[in-house]
């Protein structure tokens, strides 16, 4: 019967769902699926040769290591920035708050050439470090700096709203029960914020793993030394080794999906607290 197929009173369900699915399929799903189909054309030997080659293994190590370190540094400083922005008043706070999103808004190529120039031995910052024998640009340290830059907003923006929503009664309760300031922070506030902090960390980490634009300029792109996975894939593409690029891309995609899953689970975990505390 026609009647039972009606979905309430609002029109456009089939139109909008159809358009959504069509557009999603054309732009996202089919192209992504193509990667997996293409990689299945490779034999296992070809696949493993590419995916477990020494330059690839070195690239994974560097990508994971640098991304992890960058996310960790951001976790610490991003947390402090979020704390200061929510809890304290100081001159220029609004400006700093708006500026935090700069790494999102600034095209990565601009970030890349800027950081490479700044940290070059004759640059504003590199010039200060050169006398101590510290080289940043064209080294692994430079990659770490670039990944820290692009990951900076994630922690701030995930922790900030949770911290702002935190009921000040919780701290007052902790204080009334005899906790000092440090104990109140460590035993009450920090556990409440830790899911958000972890989520921000994972987001920053995931973003850093895939980053290309800001790294390509500051890295010397030397295999085994300063080549992260996206640079390696780009190199294969430039050499028209499409099959090898696809194999590496599949590895990256699987890692991205796993991270996405982890972030979804984290999100679910952090919402658990909110369930008992409706806004």
């Amino acid at each position: 019967m026609l009647r039972s197929q009606q979905r309430g009173v609002l029109p456009g369900f089939r139109l909008t769902l159809g358009y959504t699915l069509l557009y999603l399929s054309l732009i996202v799903i089919i192209p992504l699926a193509a990667t997996f189909v293409k990689s299945s054309e490779l034999s296992w030997a070809q696949f493993s040769q590419t995916v477990f080659s020494p330059p690839a293994l070195a690239a994974y190590r560097l990508s994971f290591g640098a991304s992890f370190l960058a996310a960790a540094v951001n976790a610490i400083f991003g947390f402090i920035v979020a704390w200061v922005l929510v809890r304290y008043d100081f001159f220029g706070k609004q400006f700093v708050d708006a500026l935090v999103d700069l790494p999102f808004a600034l095209p990565t190529a601009v970030a890349g050439i800027t950081l490479a120039t700044l940290y070059a031995p004759n640059g504003w910052l590199g010039g200060w470090l050169a006398p101590f024998g510290i080289k940043v640009s064209y080294t692994q340290l430079g990659i770490f700096i670039a990944l820290t830059f692009i990951g900076l907003p994630f922690i701030v923006r995930t922790v900030q709203p949770v911290l702002a929503d935190l009921d000040s009664e919780l701290e007052e309760a902790a204080a009334s029960l005899g906790a000092n300031r440090w104990q109140a922070f460590w035993r009450v506030i920090f556990p409440m914020l830790s899911p958000a902090l972890l989520t921000g960390f994972s987001l920053a980490f995931a973003r850093a793993l895939g980053e290309y634009g800001s790294v390509v300029f500051i890295s010397s792109n030397i295999p085994m030394k300063t080549q992260i996975v996206p640079l390696l894939i780009m190199g294969e593409l430039d050499g028209f080794h499409l099959a090898r690029a696809t194999a590496l891309a599949v590895v990256m995609l699987v890692i991205s999906f796993l991270l996405l899953l982890a972030i979804n689970l984290l999100q679910w975990w952090s919402n658990r607290y909110n369930a008992t505390n409706p806004a």
Binding site: M1, R3, S4, Q6, G8, V9
Partner: peptide, 8 residues
């Protein structure tokens, strides 16, 4: 009101 439709 016609905001829900009865089952067939």
């Amino acid at each position: 009101a016609g905001l829900e439709f009865p089952d067939a």
